[in-house]
Design a protein around this nucleic acid. Structure first.
Lengths: 337, 337
DNA sequence: AACGTTACTGGAAACGTTTCCAGTAATTCT
DNA sequence: AGAATTACTGGAAACGTTTCCAGTAACGTT
């Protein structure tokens, strides 16, 4: 079933059918109705490949995400999709796995799907100029900042929270209450990641409170899943019985950590406070509820798309936007005994 | 940058470049290397649209999922993607929202992307023969059974747990321990859904235990999110102070329910037991851990793809597979006081 | 030496659209 | 009435691939 069949069936030319399908003005009402009718009853859907092939540019926006399963990403992806659709574009979603390079995946996707722009979600940000050059469409990084200075900042956009600063704020919630033996639970799925930035914030907060950095209190899990976080927290609990608080760099890790605290016979928050950054839905339904800095997920996704489309449609150049978290005062933080 | 440029740059014809790119045998080693080299350094990626357009059939398998955010789907999607990729196909993921008809979305996707087969995840299963006919490629439904008899069973495949039976098993865990005032927490995002099947299992278990069905103990939430489940559980708790157990039809709802129980001043499981079906990762990190029937998510996804590819490649016809859950004995179930 | 194979390569058609250009009929203007 | 405009329609090229077919050169065989 092609456009030619439709043309034949409705007794008009191929061009006319095309015009009807694309809402071009120059077609009579009678013909338009007739064609639409035929289209309807023959279940015809235009072949997207042919369409994309001939159009000078597609309406495709790519989203490359590392780990769709990450619960924090759910609302972000949702917001991105909504914004993209609302603007009349189509979202092409591509997941990448631990080994892959998201930049390469993005470049490949961009060429093969003729993308207008690209959103990168949850990647490692160790891009170099050559890599960026390989990708010659506008792109925006979501959920991490470039604070390492190795990137060509003016070649792309970003929108994220200030990971280092927010981590600093989180840890200050603890130091302000008098905690001094504060552990940090990191993940290390990639080198220059969010994890490192948040770790820096942790260090700064300690330093400012005059607390020396104690390597025993730093725990880095190899993979990003709950069992790894749980085991990490267990090691911390075994190693440091003077620890009074844990800063986890993600809500999901914090949930695992709270469980580990509980299983060790201690209580959250009386014996050990837990704080995190993210604000996923489920963390306000745990017992106790998690105290965390909520990332504005909707805004993150929405803003990312807005910035990207500004670039795509030539309204504005690239820019870097920082959003702020809001503290949710749950039940998992307390002054130390 | 097209295949013609590559041909020019490497001094061979377009056909030859194509052959190199598609690993056809009839090309000399020297030429192959030369072409590959040029491809490499010019970052050339074939245009997928053109490719799909000309090939008699694509390598695309579609996945239409209702609510990517559902945590239970994460491992299923992961398994599906892995299996599809492993078989040399490409997964095209499409999310649909509450209002949309997944069958129509699937049909549209199928035509426009030239899909070889389709996986439907988490939809409502109110298909009629006409609708199925509109989609003329093999498809497999994942995560729900057809127990309503309204479907043309031999027109498609399915793989899922026996929702009614497993719900029955879950509730029997409660009746066997002596519970008699057992509530059920349903969602109602679509009419003929998993929810209804699990509800039937609940009814059967009660009947078998000689417990009359009490409508006060049936709570149906409008939407599928944690806050709705939480509110539903709260209503139950307010309404029935003789209730000693809750059967939630999904882990995530159960987590919200446990929170509601806790917030009402009662304890899980001493005052109120909670059991569910799903087995998402996080539900074994709650306090207390959730007792639930674990669905074999990996197997579900893997089997779905296997069945689908059997149909696509003509190795076998359609079939309906039922998988079994395994009980995870958590801490959320106890005998009533 | 002529021939059939084999190994490789190039030309060209085809896939299903969109869009530019040209053409026709109807309508309005002078 | 004729010219100019308008409203609509059809033809054909183009998009970037793959693949069929034909062609050439080198090689072994009789």
């Amino acid at each position: 079933m092609t456009i030619r069949d439709i043309a034949q069936l409705s007794g008009v030319s191929v061009s006319t059918v095309s015009r009807v399908l694309n809402n071009h003005p120059d077609v009579s009402e009678a013909v338009r109705r007739r064609v639409l009718e035929v289209v309807q009853e023959s279940h015809y859907v235009p072949n997207n490949s042919a369409r994309d092939l001939v159009r000078p540019q597609s309406d495709n926006i790519g989203l490359v995400v590392r780990g769709i399963g990450n619960p924090f990403f759910s609302p972000v992806i949702h917001a991105i999709e909504a914004a993209v659709e609302q603007a009349g574009y189509t979202l092409v979603l591509h997941q990448i796995h631990s080994g892959e390079d998201e930049m390469m995946a993005g470049a490949s996707l961009a060429r093969s799907k003729k993308l207008r722009g690209l959103v990168l979600l949850g990647g490692c940000c160790d891009y170099r100029s050559e890599t960026i050059a390989a990708l010659d469409i506008p792109f925006v990084c979501c959920t991490y900042t470039n604070s390492f200075g190795t990137l060509a900042q003016d070649a792309y956009s970003s929108v994220s929270i200030d990971d280092q600063m927010e981590a600093y704020r989180a840890v200050r919630e603890l130091t302000a209450r008098g905690h001094r033996n504060i552990a940090v639970l990191l993940d290390s799925t990639c080198d220059h990641s969010i994890s490192q930035l948040r770790y820096k914030g942790y260090c700064r907060a300690l330093e400012e409170a005059g607390i020396p950095l104690d390597p025993r209190l730093v725990e880095e899990t190899g993979t990003f899943d709950l069992s790894a976080a749980y085991e990490g927290a267990r090691r911390l609990l075994n190693r440091c019985d003077d620890m009074t608080a844990i800063f986890a760099i993600a809500d999901s890790m914090a949930i695992a950590a709270m469980k580990a605290v509980h299983d060790s016979g201690r209580r959250v928050p009386e014996d050990c406070s837990v704080i995190a950054i993210d604000g996923i839905e489920i963390s306000s339904y745990t017992v106790p509820t998690l105290t965390t800095l909520i990332q504005p997920a909707d805004q993150l996704g929405g803003e990312a798309v807005r910035i990207l489309l500004d670039m795509v449609e030539g309204r504005a150049g690239n820019r870097h936007v920082l959003l702020h978290t809001t503290l949710r005062n749950g039940e998992s933080v307390h002054a130390p005994k």
